[in-house]
């Protein structure tokens, strides 16, 4: 122990300990620290009295306010939901699609909520603007796999495509090459024919393939895509004569489609979204293709 010294700056004495030159002053604990501690302690006691706090045995103190976060949230959600139903949701639930679409005042909240729902649930696959991408259909286009009326769209959303719902839509483009139904030459022929239907730039040597391709199409493809290749919405088989392509339109892409087959997957939303939300989404998707 060293003798206590007086520090010139603070006027305090040191404790007399020195560690490698470090000394400590005997400054008492400032009063403000005690005041601060008392203040926070009071706050803590208040919390303990008002809210659920201390455990004892298999239970705990419930607090004077009878406050329970679960009830609070449940109530708040129910109240907000009720207000929304009263405001406009109830009308959307009750009216049919045509009536809602004819009512611009009602369509306004539908658009708002529809956009939000779409971006939170659908944009990951279909894109923020619903224009799709390779493997995921454009929902703003005029072409539909299953039909573009609001009712049909709602049904597609509810059950999904090749989804998990029992009544899901199922769609299957067969793998003609892999399963050896057609050989390479035959596939090249039918691909040339299909591409010619929508006036695509022919690949080298395609001119001679179109006629034999037409024959193959009639035998293998027409059952699903129809004689005129305009597709069949009962089966989700796309129209092959228009400009929209889910999987790409160059020779290689179409060849891959016919060789390997395709089986797009769209989740079944019926278990995750409420009927009202699905209705709103269908209305929203339907507005996207309307010319503006």
């Amino acid at each position: 122990m060293e003798p206590r010294k007086r520090d010139k700056v603070t006027g305090r004495t040191t404790t007399g300990h020195i560690w490698n030159g470090i000394e400590e002053l005997e400054t008492p604990i400032p009063k403000v620290v005690f005041a601060f501690l008392a203040g926070t302690f009071l706050f803590a006691v208040l919390c303990w009295v008002l809210y659920p706090a201390w455990p004892f045995g298999v239970s705990y103190t419930k607090g004077l306010l009878g406050f329970d976060q679960r009830n609070v949230v449940t109530e708040q959600v129910a109240k907000a939901e009720a207000a929304r139903i009263e405001d406009w949701g109830g009308k959307v639930e009750a009216l049919d699609y045509a009536q809602i679409e004819a009512d611009p005042a009602l369509m306004q909240p539908v658009r708002e909520e529809g956009r939000r729902l779409f971006e939170d649930n659908c944009a990951a696959c279909h894109g923020v603007k619903a224009t799709g991408g390779p493997g995921f259909p454009d929902l703003t286009a005029k072409a539909w796999l299953w039909g573009g009326s609001s009712e049909t769209i709602a049904e597609t959303i509810r059950v999904g495509i090749n989804g998990t719902a029992e009544d899901t839509r199922s769609s299957q483009m067969l793998s003609f090459g892999k399963d050896q139904m057609l050989d390479r030459e035959q596939i090249l022929n039918v691909v040339a024919y299909v591409r010619s239907l929508s006036d695509l730039e022919p690949a080298a040597g395609d001119a001679a393939r179109i006629e034999p391709g037409k024959e193959i199409f009639a035998q293998n493809c027409a059952s699903c895509h129809d004689e005129d290749a305009k597709g069949n919405q009962e089966l989700g088989a796309p129209n092959l004569t228009d400009e929209t392509w889910i999987y790409g339109s160059d020779q290689q892409a179409v060849y891959t489609t016919v060789y390997n087959g395709r089986q797009g997957h769209m989740p079944s939303w019926g278990e995750r979204l409420t009927p009202l939300q699905i209705k709103i989404l269908a209305l929203y998707v339907h507005t996207l293709k309307a010319p503006q």
Partner: peptide, 24 residues
């Protein structure tokens, strides 16, 4: 359970005192 949250919250308030005492 909410009682655990209340304890965490109230002790976090008191925790500020020694923290600021160290910084001070």
């Amino acid at each position: 359970p909410q009682w655990v949250q209340t304890l965490g919250m109230s002790f976090s308030a008191m925790l500020l005192v020694p923290s600021w005492a160290s910084a001070g």
